[in-house]
Design a binder for these strands. Structure first.
Lengths: 190, 190, 190, 190
DNA sequence: CATGAATGAGGTTTCATTCAT
DNA sequence: TATGAATGAAACCTCATTCAT
C-alpha cells in the first residue's frame, strides 16, 4: 500500500511536534503507525529523510497556499491580509506541521536554506513590494520581523489557550492589526 | 575551583544554543571546558540540572533587568519603551542565553512553568496595565503576541544579518514601533 | 527467537549466584549468552527486571512444588517431611536458583515482600498448623528459624562438600531430624 | 587522631550491613564520618581493605568471645549452651557486624577461607568433640548445619520482629532447644 | 512488504582512586 | 592529616540501522 508511507509521515509529524525530533525514536514512530522498526526502512532510508521531507513538504504546502492567495488581484491591503489569513488558517488547521516547522527551523538552520519554497520568502517578497510602493510605515526588515513574529506567537498563544475565539476570527483580526501597524494611513486610498 | 562550575555553564550554554540541548553531549561540554566527563558530575548531578539551571538563571537575570527598568517613574510610554529596550539589549548582549531560552521554551513547556521569574510574565503585566488604563489600541492578548513575537524575530534577524545597525539603535527603533502599533494615538497625552 | 530470553535468564542466574548481583554486569551476561549488551534490552528493559523476574520465577516454582507436596493427605508427619524433602530436592536440583534466592533475600528485603508465592510463607503456615494441633515441642517462631536455617545450611554444606551423600538421602535425613527436633514424642500417634 | 580510622570502620560497617558492600560508596562512608573521600585513603589504601579488615576484626572478636566461653570447665551441656548464648549475645549486641559477616560470607567465600579465627571453626570443633564422646544424636555435619542455620535465623527473625522477647531470654531458649535437638537423652548424665 | 532480533556506536552516569593544595 | 577536584575505567542504557527470515 502506498498508505503506509503516508502514515509514517503523519505519525512522525505528530511525535516530532510533541516531543521534538531527537526525542522521537524510530520505534516510537513505528509503534504509532502499528508496524515495526524495520518496516520503516522500506519507505525511508533514514530518520533524517523523514525529518527533512516533512519540512520540505509542509513548507511547500504553506508556500503554495500563500502563493495562491496572492493571485487574487485586488488591493494591496486585501492581498496582504488574505495572505496573512491563509498563513494562519494553515497553521490552525495543521498545528503539528506548523509547530514542527518552527522546531525544525530552530535546530537545522543549514538545512532550511536548502529548501526552495520557503513561506518566509513570500512574506519577505510581499513586504518588499509594499516598501517599493512607498506605503510601508516602517523599515521592511522590521516589518518582516513584526509579521513573522506575530504570526508565530498568535499561533502559539492560541494553542496555549491565551488567545481565544474562532480560528477565522483570530486570523482576520491578526491580519487587520498587522496591516494597521505596517501601513501609513492615507485615508484608505491604497 | 569555584571557576569550573561557571565554566561548565558558559560552555554548555554556547553549545546548547548552537546545536540544541539533546544534540549536545556531556562529552562536548567537558571537552569545551577542558576536563573529563566525570568531572562534570562533581558540579551538577545530571545533564538536566545544567539545562534547567541555565534557563532559570537567565530568565531571572532578564526578568530583573526588565523589572529594574520599570522602576523609573515616568510616562507609560517611557516605561514601556525602556523595558523593551532593556529586553533587547539583554538579548543582544547575551545572544547564546537568549537563543537558548527560546529553544528550551519550545521543547520543555512543562519545566518552563516551574520557573518563577519569567520575563513573559512581566511583559504580560505591563501590557495588562496599559489595557486597564484604556490606552491600548488592540486586545491585550494580541498585543502580547505582537510584542513577544517581534522581539524574538528582531533578535533573530539581527543575528542572521537581515536587520543591520547598532544594537542601541535597533532596540530604540523596535521599542518605538511597538509602542506605535499598540497605542491609540491621542495627541501624545499618555 | 523465543530462546534468547530464556538463555539470558539462565546465564544471568548462573552469574548472579556465582558472583553476586551487583558484581555481575550486563556485559557478563551478554557474553555468556553470546550476544551484545544492547540485545539484552530487547528482552528486558533493565537489569533490575532480570534480577526481580528470576527471584519471582524460582520463588513461585519452589512454592508450587511445596504446595503440591502438601496435597497428599496422610499424617502430619508425612506432610511435613515430604514438604521438607521437596524443598531440598528443589535446592539440590537448582543450586544456582536456590543460592541466588538467598543472595537476593539478603540484599533486597523490600522487593522480597512484593513477591506473592514465597516458600517462606508455606513453611510458616505448615508450622503454624502443627502448633495449633498442639504437637509442636517448641515455640513456632523458633521452629521456623530452625527449619529454614537448617535447610539453608544443609544445602550450603552439601555444595561445599561438608555434607556428603546422595541427594535423596540427605533430604530424607534432614526431614527426619527436623521432625524429631520439632515434635513432642507421643508414641507415634500424630 | 587514631579516632578517625575507627570511625571509618564503624560507619562503613553500618552502611555495608544496611545496603551491601558494592552498594556502599567511599563517598557514602566519608559523608557518614564527616570527612571527604580523599581522607579515607590516609587510613586505608583501598575500599577492599576496609571490607576485609571489618570481616577479620569481627570474626576474631566473636571467635574470642566464644573461645572464652568455652574455658569455663563445667559439663558438656553447659559449655555448649554457654557458647551458643555467647554467640547470640554477640549477634544481638553487634547486629551490624553480624549481618555484615553474613553478607560478606555470601559474596566472598574465597576471602573467608583466609581468615584464621573463624567462629565457624569453633562451632565445628565443639560439635566434633560431642561426636567423639558419643553423645550426639545426629551426624555431626547435620548438627553443624542445624546449629549455624538456626543461629543465623534466630538473629534474623529477631531483627525482623518475628521472634520477640528479651535478648538474654532468646539466647537461652535457643541454646536449650539446640542442645535438646542434638543430644541423645540419657537421663541428664552428660 | 514486514518482522523483530541483533549490532555497534555512543550517550549518561557512577565511582574507586589520585593528586595538587 | 585533610580537602575536593579531577581522572579514567567501566557500568547501564538507548537507538538508528541492518539482516535473516
Amino acid at each position: 500500500m502506498v498508505r503506509t508511507r503516508d502514515l509514517i509521515l503523519v505519525e512522525a509529524l505528530k511525535l516530532f511536534s510533541e516531543k521534538g525530533i531527537k526525542e522521537t525514536t524510530i520505534r516510537d514512530i513505528a509503534r504509532a503507525v502499528g508496524i515495526t522498526e524495520g518496516a520503516i526502512y522500506r519507505h525511508f532510508h533514514s530518520k533524517d529523510q523523514i525529518v527533512y521531507e516533512l519540512f520540505e513538504k509542509y513548507s511547500a504546502e504553506l508556500y503554495e497556499i500563500m502563493e495562491e492567495s496572492l493571485k487574487e488581484k485586488t488591493s494591496d491591503e486585501m492581498r496582504f491580509r488574505t495572505m496573512i489569513e491563509a498563513f494562519l488558517n494553515f497553521a490552525f488547521n495543521n498545528p503539528d506541521a506548523f509547530r514542527y516547522m518552527n522546531i525544525f527551523h530552530y535546530l537545522r538552520e543549514k538545512q532550511v536554506r536548502r529548501v526552495k519554497k520557503l513561506p518566509f520568502n513570500l512574506l519577505s517578497k510581499v513586504i518588499g513590494d509594499l516598501e517599493e510602493k512607498g506605503i510601508l510605515k516602517i523599515e521592511p526588515e522590521y516589518a518582516l520581523a513584526m509579521v513573522t513574529g506575530t504570526l508565530e506567537r498568535v499561533f502559539l498563544y492560541r494553542s496555549m489557550g491565551i488567545i481565544k475565539g474562532r480560528k477565522k476570527v483570530i486570523a482576520k483580526k491578526t491580519a487587520q492589526l498587522l496591516w494597521n501597524s505596517l501601513i501609513e494611513y492615507n485615508g484608505g486610498k491604497n
